[in-house]
C-alpha cells in the first residue's frame, strides 16, 4: 500500500492546531512514516495539490474561504476537521451574536467595504466532514489526532468518547469545580470527554472546547449553573465562548 498523501489547510484560526501537530516530536516522525505530507503551510513552502486526505483547521468566515473549502472537498477523499474552530466554529462565532455592521467597522474602519467577511461557521456548515479531531487545541498533545489517523489507516471508526468530561475528571481524582472551596462554573457535565479533563486538572473550568455530547442535559446544566449563581444571560455567554453554534453531538 502506498502512503496516503495528506494536505494541511488553514482557515480563520490562530493556526495553533497545526503547531500542535508539529510539536508532537517523536509521534510526528511515526506519523510521517505512515503518510506523505504534500501541503503544510506551517511547515513547508511546498504546495502539492495531489492530496487524498485534507486536514483542515479554522472556521469559515469569508466568501473566499467558502469557495476554497469546496475546492478542497472536491479533491480530498477524506476530510478531517482539526480543532475547535473547524469542528464547531469555536471562538470565531462569538461575533455572530453582535451587530455585524458595528463589528466589521470596528475591525476594518473605513475600509469595511473591501472585506467579504461573513458570519463565522464550522467546516461542516458548508461541506461534509468525515472525521473530527476535537479540542482547542487538539487534545492530549495531539495524541488523539494520531489515534484518528491510525484508525483511518486501519479502516476502522476512531474511538471518540461520547460521555461528559466528568468521567475523566473523576478518574483523575479531581475535586469537582463546583465543590471547591471557591466553586467555579464548568461546562464539563455537557462537554464531550477525550481530553482527560485537562483544564479542570489544572484548576480551571472546562470551557467546552470539544463540543457538546450527543445528548447534553441542558436543563440540568442550567439548574446547576443557576445554583452556582449564574444568570441565564451569563450561562449563554459561557456557552457562546466556543459553542455559539450550540450544535450537539457531532
Amino acid at each position: 500500500m502506498s502512503k496516503p498523501k495528506v494536505g494541511f489547510f488553514s482557515f480563520t484560526s490562530c493556526e495553533g492546531c497545526q503547531l500542535v501537530v508539529l510539536s508532537m516530536a517523536d509521534k510526528l516522525f511515526d506519523l510521517l512514516g505512515a503518510v506523505e505530507v504534500v501541503n503544510f503551510r506551517e511547515a513547508s513552502s511546498y504546495k502539492g495539490e495531489d492530496y487524498d486526505v485534507a486536514i483542515v483547521e479554522g472556521a469559515l468566515s469569508t466568501v473566499h474561504e467558502i469557495e476554497e473549502i469546496r475546492a478542497i472537498r472536491q479533491q480530498a477523499k477524506i476530510l478531517i476537521a482539526l480543532g475547535a474552530c473547524a469542528h464547531i466554529g469555536g471562538i470565531n462565532c462569538i461575533r455572530n451574536f453582535d451587530n455585524q455592521f458595528e463589528i466589521k467597522k470596528s475591525v476594518y474602519g473605513d475600509k469595511v467595504a473591501n472585506f467579504d467577511s461573513i458570519l463565522a461557521q464550522p467546516i461542516d456548515a458548508v461541506v461534509k466532514v468525515d472525521y473530527y479531531s476535537r479540542g482547542c487545541p487538539p487534545n492530549r498533545d495531539g495524541e488523539e489526532f494520531v489515534e484518528i489517523v491510525t484508525a483511518i489507516l486501519q479502516g476502522k471508526k476512531p474511538y471518540i468518547p461520547n460521555f461528559p468530561v466528568c468521567v475523566q475528571c473523576k478518574m483523575k481524582g479531581n475535586v469537582c469545580t463546583f465543590h471547591k472551596e471557591r466553586p467555579i462554573t464548568c461546562l464539563g457535565p455537557v462537554t464531550r470527554a477525550g481530553c482527560s479533563a485537562h483544564c479542570p486538572s489544572y484548576g480551571n473550568a472546562c470551557i467546552g472546547c470539544r463540543g457538546l455530547v450527543e445528548e447534553p442535559n441542558l436543563n440540568a446544566h442550567q439548574e446547576t449553573l443557576s445554583g452556582a449563581g449564574l444568570t441565564v444571560e451569563e450561562s449563554l455567554k459561557f456557552y457562546r465562548m466556543l459553542n455559539g453554534m450550540m450544535e450537539v453531538g457531532k
Partner: peptide
Amino acid sequence: LCYGCGSCNMVCPTCYCFDVQDYMHVSL
C-alpha cells in the same frame, strides 16, 4: 435531571465495570 456523566460510577467503590480499548500504533 441526570447528566449521564458517570460521576457516580467513577467515585463508587463497588462499581467495577470496564471497557476494553485497543491502541494500535500508527505504524500498524
